[in-house]
Design a protein around this nucleic acid. Structure first.
Lengths: 329, 329
DNA sequence: TTGTATGCGTTATCAC
DNA sequence: GTGATAACGCATACAA
């Protein structure tokens, strides 16, 4: 690989001048500029980003932390962040944290050694105190982590209210909820939204709620428990789509017809919900937009175009598919 | 961040000595070693990887190129490569190429400026001539790219034969194929495996084959065409699971019962096939193992533990689920 | 408008 | 055993 010295030699100028034309800084005579440009193309010269990083202390790299890219919610988020990174000339690093705080801290450590410029993080486990002391920009995505951080989320509580109300309007009389993990902010908000709507109903009891931990299998079992102990359930709000598919499977295994006997609505709007039979009604997030916006905020923060904390909340929208149907009166 | 100089000063030695204890190179007195170690912990010193990279010309980073992480085949591959990277102390960069040769070339360019150490690539579009001239190690995964490259794949042709034979053994008399794109090596191999089994059958005609381009929607349409023009089809081999789900949907929309009237078997073994109704029978690849092995070979090549080209082929295995059933005689 | 010199934080070479 | 010091490739402060 040619270096800036080779270019300087060929163009018969100093390296400083080459650097100037490279970065468009300072004055440089039109004629020499052209000589340098010619030398650059002749040698097919590309600046060494590592040397640049060393000098600048910045690397033009950002990372996305997700619990596990194999969870079908995250690929679209990853794609969005990567697209924005590329658009802004950043390299995209992906880290799977398994919701393990030790791994998260370890990643931060290693990436800082590489002068990583910033992190978009989806996490509920990392200590807020740790993350606020990380001295590079961090943007929380999908879940709130710490009040000092910028974040991009959706209106989970309101969305959950709408989902539950939708089931009511369909004519469901007994609406249960398969909840996400109780230490995750968005799961709590979805639970609260559900409670907002049903808590005052005379039939309501807490036994209409079961934990599904955002996992397919757990949700399937949770749904089986719900439908067994409360056969009167005719509507189910599930905290995310992955669990929603688990719920679908549970109903099937118990011989309960969806949507004829039971309407199911979930949350997220991932593609998975379009491939099941019946397809899954859901409160769809603008997943791609949220991911892209998080990356954009991060980059603005890195480049100090906008240094202050930003909190953005997108709106979810119902997507009616086959797993819900109006009940006959 | 503390630097090696700070450590040297605190331990009252030279930076050279600190470097020695850091890397375990050269002789250093036990006592000084301890002093240095103490200074390191006291300052919470971490070496600057950028400076190291600049000196060494290597970055301890590897990349994975995939067409699109949103395609459900790739997240497991990405996870595998990332896990192996982490295990060997490499940082993991993810690139979505959209099967666009220009983007691929551009990524290579930019990553080389960052001294990226190597690439695991899933691609059918990049020019083999270009990639063989990339002067860092490259390992092809899932698809063959160029004869000079190391690669990790599966026995596509044999797997396709087994899938087709399996349908025959089930009693299917007219077996059609929804094929992948015709410029992709593994898709061609799967098509050939199908042909190996059915080409000599007297009923066989090329109209039993339709292109699905490895896309859900295309496969759905292709299947509708197949089942419309050949209502006698009772067995379908689909070139991958994503398309298999599309085929399932097509059959449903035509009112054809799977597996009662039509048995469907696909290829890959991704999780998606477990969530459909009926679940999808498939020739399952050891996706995670293949990804991990590709990364391992890459790293061996980078670290010159094993410099020569490696070609590994894993074996696929049938996973019988609900989309196939023995036909009554 | 351009060149010289210095530093970014490491590692390796060569003395001592 | 240990310490100066050059070098990795670039960008900037300062001179000219």
């Amino acid at each position: 690989m040619a270096t800036i010295k080779d270019v300087a030699r060929l163009a018969e100028v100093s390296t400083a001048t080459v650097s100037r034309v490279l970065n468009g800084n300072g004055y440089v005579h039109q004629g020499t500029k052209e000589r340098v440009a010619k030398a650059i193309t002749q040698l097919n010269y590309r600046p060494n980003d590592v040397a640049r990083s060393l000098f600048k202390g910045r690397s033009k790299m950002i990372a996305l932390f997700v619990p596990d890219i194999m969870n079908p919610f995250f690929p679209e988020l990853a794609r969005a962040v990567e697209d924005m990174a590329k658009k802004r000339d950043y390299t995209f690093v992906l880290c799977n944290t398994d919701d393990d705080p030790a791994k998260e801290v370890n990643y931060v450590q290693e990436l800082k050694q590489k002068s990583l410029d910033g992190i978009v993080i989806v996490s509920s486990t990392i200590s807020g105190d740790f993350i606020k002391d990380v001295d590079i920009p961090v943007v929380a995505l999908d879940r709130i982590l710490h009040p000092s951080l910028s974040s991009v989320t959706v209106n989970n509580r309101q969305g959950a209210r709408e989902a539950t109300t939708y089931l009511q309007e369909l004519g469901c009389k007994r609406i249960a909820h398969v909840a996400g993990p109780n230490n995750v902010s968005n799961a709590e908000q979805r639970l609260n939204g559900y409670l907002d709507v049903v808590q005052e109903e005379d039939w309501f009891r807490y036994s209409f709620i079961e934990q599904g931990g955002y996992h397919f299998d757990e949700a399937k079992k949770a749904t089986e428990r719900l439908l067994t102990k409360h056969p009167e359930i005719d509507g189910l709000f599930v905290a995310n789509d992955l669990m929603g598919v688990g719920a679908l499977k549970a109903a099937q295994s118990l011989g309960i017809a969806v949507p004829d006997q039971l309407s199911i609505i979930a949350f997220d709007g991932i593609t998975l919900g379009e491939t099941t039979t019946p397809t899954l009604t859901t409160m769809a997030q603008p997943i791609y937009k949220a991911g892209a916006r998080a990356a954009e905020i991060l980059i603005e923060q890195i480049e100090q175009q906008n240094d202050q904390r930003q909190v953005e909340e997108f709106t979810v929208e119902i997507v009616e598919r086959e797993s819900t149907r109006r009940r006959d009166a």
